[in-house]
Computed example of a mutant assay.
Amino acid sequence: MRLRIHGGVGEKGRTCIGVEHGSTRLLLDVGVDTSSPRGPAYYPAIAPDMLVATDAIIVTHAHEDHVGALGWCLANGFSGRILMTAEAAAETAATLAAYATPEECALARNGPVEIIEPGRHFEIGPLAVRTGRSGHVVGGVWCHLSAGGRSLGYCGDVVPASPVFAMDPMPPCDLFLVDASYGEDRIPAVERGRAVARWLQAHPQGAVLPTPLTGRSIELIALIETPIAIHPSMREPLAQQIAATDWLAPGMAEILASRLARAELWQEGMALPAAALLCHDGMGLSGPSQAALTQASAAGHPVLLTGHLPKGSPAATMLASGQAQWLRFPTHPTLPENAALAATSGAAVILAHSCDIATARALAPVIARLNPEIRPGDVIEV
């Protein structure tokens, strides 16, 4: 089995991992890099002839850095199988509408999707594939591939100790890719959550909280005990996520449904509410957060940012100018969690995805057997 890096290792964004065994080729995720202008660096580093020869794409979840290039792959020659969970499939169109061209959206909309279920095994040629719930979002999965007596574990994005989402244990493997989005962060999730809650309690006039539509939004709803507001376009997607109880921690659906039912509605043209206003996306690049951030900037209204901020995004610009504050909200593993996942995997080789090489080098002394020098274009034998 061979691994070919097309993005997301040695860099943040455009996650795309090629797996080859014999004549079978597949891609694990096909993301875009929102820190780059649309062009070669925005999309995975994979040539059209390789896309033509690719048998399948497995999408772990419907965030832009994992699915945003799906239509681009179809436009550049891919015609194989597309596999993802039903929940990820339902959310992909909204993600592509924000981060893909109209042509790419149309191609992805018409592309046939095969639904996978966590825990159910399937095959792509000689490759045996297992998936499990990732703890990151409703419909998010990790992947385990095996062939010829060798195996690969790919986290996608995972949260081992999410209070909202369930994560299934990952099987042992020979090569393991950890989700290193948070780099050297060692602060426990519960401590991060308390800091966000304290900040909101200290701002009773309300605040704008840009957040992805899937995943972090309902985790924030679970955390926030002060008044909440949402954009009307978010109500139905959030309700659908909450109704997907198989993906949630026990008892969480009832708490989330009750808080969503009490949420105030805000939309463009209205005064910003005296509440924690959740609006997508988390970077101010698309959706109602664009208008909410513009209005907050003009009014001097508080803004709390809680996730990744691509260079040049409206949210990053407001943070740099002092018009917003940033507190990380835990939706990826901490360094101790990644070290534990890597040790449990038993893998002889560990790679870090969703971080740059400098960050990977900083992780290597803590995560045994981590190779920090891998980057797009590299090929690794499993």
Rank of each mutant, 00 (worst) to 15 (best):
C155H: 05
A161M: 00
V190S: 12
F176L: 13
G183D: 06
V190Q: 12
G156D: 01
D174Y: 09
G183L: 12
G183R: 04
G149I: 08
S151Q: 03
D168W: 11
V158N: 00
P160K: 03
V164M: 12
V178R: 03
V178C: 15
G148I: 10
Y154T: 00
G183F: 05
A180G: 15
M170S: 06
Y154D: 03
D157R: 01
S151P: 02
C155L: 01
A147R: 08
E184Y: 01
R150F: 04
P171F: 01
V158C: 08
R150V: 10
A161C: 06
L152M: 08
E191V: 14
P172A: 10
R186W: 07
P172G: 05
A161G: 01
E184P: 11
D168H: 08
A166R: 15
G156I: 03
D179R: 12
A166V: 10
V190M: 07
A147L: 11
D174N: 14
A180C: 13
S162G: 09
G183M: 06
D168A: 12
V158I: 14
C173Q: 01
S162N: 03
P163A: 07
R186S: 10
D157I: 01
L152R: 01
A161L: 11
V178F: 15
A180I: 15
P171W: 04
V178L: 15
A166F: 08
M170E: 09
P172S: 04
L175N: 06
G153L: 13
C173A: 15
G153C: 08
P172I: 06
A161T: 12
P188K: 05
Y154I: 15
D157Q: 15
F165E: 01
D157K: 11
A161V: 12
A161P: 00
A166N: 00
G149F: 10
V158K: 05
P163W: 02
D179Q: 04
